[in-house]
Computed example of a mutant assay.
Amino acid sequence: METQYSELYWGARYHLKQDPNGNYYLIGMHQKIWKVFGFIALVPMSASIVMAFVSLMESDNQMYFFLIVAAVLLLISLILMRRTERFVFSGGRVSHLRGWGKTPPEKASWSVRDCNVTVIPIVAHKSGCWLQLNADGKSMTRNSIGQFDQTAEMALFLSKEVGITALDNVTDWPETRPLEMTAASKPRYVKPSRIEGAEFEVQGSIWRLLWIFPFTLTLGTMLFVFNWVQG
Rank of each mutant, 00 (worst) to 15 (best):
F148I: 10
P105F: 06
Q4A: 15
L158F: 07
A12H: 07
S139L: 05
E161R: 12
F148E: 09
T182S: 15
E85I: 03
L74K: 00
V69R: 11
I164R: 07
T118K: 08
C115S: 01
V162C: 12
I27H: 04
I27D: 06
G128H: 06
L80F: 06
K32H: 10
L26I: 10
N143R: 00
F37E: 01
A52Q: 05
K186L: 06
R83D: 00
Q4W: 13
F224Q: 10
L217R: 05
K35D: 06
V36F: 11
V162N: 00
V225K: 12
E196R: 12
T171M: 03
V119E: 01
D136T: 02
F37Y: 08
L179T: 14
M63N: 13
S55V: 06
V54F: 13
S95N: 00
T118M: 09
W100L: 15
L133D: 00
A108Y: 08
G146K: 04
Q4N: 15
D19Q: 01
A47E: 05
R177K: 15
M222K: 05
V69Y: 07
A41N: 02
L179R: 12
F200H: 14
F87C: 01
R142C: 01
S90A: 15
S95C: 07
F200M: 12
L156K: 09
W173H: 14
V94G: 13
F39R: 03
Y24I: 01
V112W: 06
E199Y: 14
I79Q: 00
Q31I: 01
K102L: 13
T84H: 05
V170E: 04
A47S: 07
L217K: 03
V117L: 04
P178E: 08
T165N: 15
L75S: 08
R82M: 10
K186T: 08
S205K: 03
P192F: 11
Q230E: 11
L158R: 02
L167H: 00
V170L: 11
H96W: 15
Y9P: 03
A41H: 01
W211S: 06
S139Q: 05
L74V: 03
S6P: 02
E7N: 04
M1G: 13
K191M: 10
K186F: 04
L78W: 03
F200T: 03
V36I: 11
R142F: 00
P192K: 03
L210T: 12
T171P: 05
I68D: 05
Q203Y: 10
T218A: 11
G99F: 02
A12S: 08
D136H: 13
S55G: 14
S205C: 14
G99P: 05
Q203G: 04
I33V: 05
K35V: 14
V50H: 04
E161Q: 14
L74G: 11
P121Q: 00
G99N: 03
T84R: 06
P174G: 11
E7T: 08
M81P: 00
R208M: 07
K17A: 01
M222Q: 10
S159K: 05
M29G: 11
M81Y: 09
E161N: 09
F226C: 13
